[in-house]
Design a protein around this nucleic acid. Structure first.
Length: 465
RNA sequence: GUCCCUAUCGUCUAGCCUGGCCCAGGACACCGGCCUUUCACGCCGGCGACGGGGGUUCGAAUCCCCCUGGGGACGCCA
């Protein structure tokens, strides 16, 4: 059997969204699994709406997700001569014809059809037009067969058939000479040797017309796999109304790419009861056979859970590097402060996003503690004088500055003051972090270091009121 | 309106092809408890679904039909 060739073909009219990313992921996984070829093609035939920034954004998002392609990116805007030739061939063979109907006329017909509750469909006025209005602008339409039916065996949905009479004569070339999607997608998929088209199921209706086009152009028809849509919480097609739909927006929100990949793949695909998949496992296990047929609702909560899972189990060194960036976004530098990787170790169990982690790591890197007013009022009172005095005494004498060493020292403070651990931990926590919430204060001190810890406790002791 | 797709807990899903192991399993969320140095994590437990109606069969979540619900397409967008 010949090598599998799949493709992802986004149109650069915006960022890479959740749905597109999943389609790209499925293509990528299958290509890797079958040792096939993953082609990236930019569908920018709509010159007016396509932008360079969108191309950049899509490329960047794919890279972030780790979806590298084997060929491309190809740009359709650079292949116009090819399409023009194919249109000419279609015209010459009688497979296509010029249509002089104006956009206004068509719009009027469409509205009329809708009023009469008919399917709005081109009526074929110009099919057999004899007089040719010289100099008038025209589009080129596909001469769609009206008899018979067109069927295909969808790899996900099963066999799907359409009566050809339901199809209308779609436009292959606009009046400005540029080709349209349904035409170029066929020409390119065929010319690029794509033998399996994986795409959203909103394309199912286009498929029979495209099949007819493949045949009219003398190309082999590829296989199709239509992936179900992703819906918002209200069961409507996912859109900006549902919150962040841009893949990269999730990076900015503190999500890890592996969480996004894992979430996306499980939305519509499953492997028994398994929930957590590494990219390597996915490449090994992914199969179109296990892709569901019905639309799925995007569930941000589950994505968040996966993210927390990957933060929890992630390599501290790598997370530390990322933490630097998120901290920087908050306006904090890590140069003079504890190693980010060490900070990560104290925080990775308690954060669901990297943004959260950065927010909780800020006190490690601030020069001075910023006290939460309520926390200060409650825990930094003169009544704590003995606790601070004893703690300072024990800690100053401590040689073994580790979490364990600090804990032992605080144990001696407990003996000295007769207080329970909880009673001395909270005031110290406020002294060290400015707040009442943090990791174990022993760990915090170990990571923060002797000098900074002692300085903060002293400073807090001095302002007990 | 026409055509196409689709239907298991609130959500993602396993099971369906090859009926009995399913008075339906897992995960997220939610609720309760335990742990505890605050907050989390973790652990234990709970809540919760085969859309409806007809068949076929000894037996149906699983097979067939109808209905209903949901989604999509119907562009000189892709």
């Amino acid at each position: 059997m010949s090598q599998l060739r799949v493709r992802f073909a986004p149109s650069p009219t915006g960022y890479l969204h959740i749905g597109g990313a999943r389609t790209a992921l499925f293509n990528y996984l299958l290509a890797r699994k079958e040792q096939g070829c993953f082609v990236l093609r930019i569908e920018d035939t709509d010159v007016a709406r396509s932008t360079e920034q969108s191309v950049e954004a899509i490329l960047q998002a794919m890279q972030w997700l780790g979806l590298s392609c084997d060929e491309g990116p190809y740009y359709q805007s650079q292949r116009f001569p090819l399409y023009r030739d194919k249109v000419q061939a279609m015209l010459a063979s009688g497979g296509a014809y010029r249509c002089y109907c104006t956009a206004e006329e068509l719009e009027a017909k469409r509205q009329l059809a809708e009023q009469q509750k008919r399917k709005p469909k081109y009526d074929g006025t110009c099919r057999n037009r004899s007089e040719v209005p010289a100099g008038s602008p025209y589009v080129v339409r596909f001469h769609t067969p009206r008899e018979g039916e067109t069927c295909f065996a969808d790899r996900i949905k099963g066999t799907i058939c359409f009566q050809n009479q339901e199809l209308d004569d779609l436009i292959l070339q606009r009046s400005d000479g540029t080709p349209t999607y349904n035409f170029v997608v066929v020409v390119d998929d065929a010319e690029m040797g794509i033998n399996l088209v994986i795409r959203g199921d909103d394309h199912i209706n286009n498929t029979p017309r495209q099949i007819l086009l493949y045949q009219a152009l003398g190309y082999a028809v590829p296989e199709f796999a239509h992936v179900p849509m992703i819906l918002g919480a209200d069961q409507k097609r996912l859109s900006k109304r549902h919150g962040a739909t841009s893949v990269m927006a999730y990076r900015d929100l503190g999500y890890l790419p592996e969480a996004m990949v894992n979430y996306l793949v499980r939305l519509g695909w499953s492997h028994g009861d398994q929930e957590i998949f590494s990219m390597e496992e996915l490449i090994e296990m992914f199969s179109l056979d296990q892709v569901g047929r019905s639309a799925g609702v995007f569930n941000p909560e589950k994505l968040l859970w996966l993210n927390s899972h990957y933060i929890k189990t992630g390599d501290p060194q790598r997370l530390g590097d990322l933490l630097r960036d998120y901290l920087a976004a908050l306006g904090h530098r890590c140069d003079d402060g504890p190693e980010p990787a060490e900070v990560v170790k104290t925080l990775q169990d308690r954060c669901k996003t990297m943004v959260e982690m950065a927010e909780q790591a800020v006190y490690y890197y601030r020069r001075e503690v910023v006290f939460d007013a309520q926390a200060e009022a409650k825990f930094l009172t003169s009544a704590q004088q003995p606790v601070f005095a004893a703690t300072l005494e024990q800690l100053s004498a401590l040689n073994n500055w580790t979490a364990g060493g600090v804990e032992d020292a605080l144990g001696r403070v407990m003996e000295e003051t007769g207080l329970k651990f909880g009673k001395i931990a909270q005031p110290l926590r406020v002294a060290l972090t400015g707040n009442t919430v943090s990791p174990s204060i022993c760990e915090v001190m170990a990571v923060m270091g002797r000098d900074r810890s002692l300085a903060r406790i002293s400073r807090a002791a001095a302002r007990l009121a």
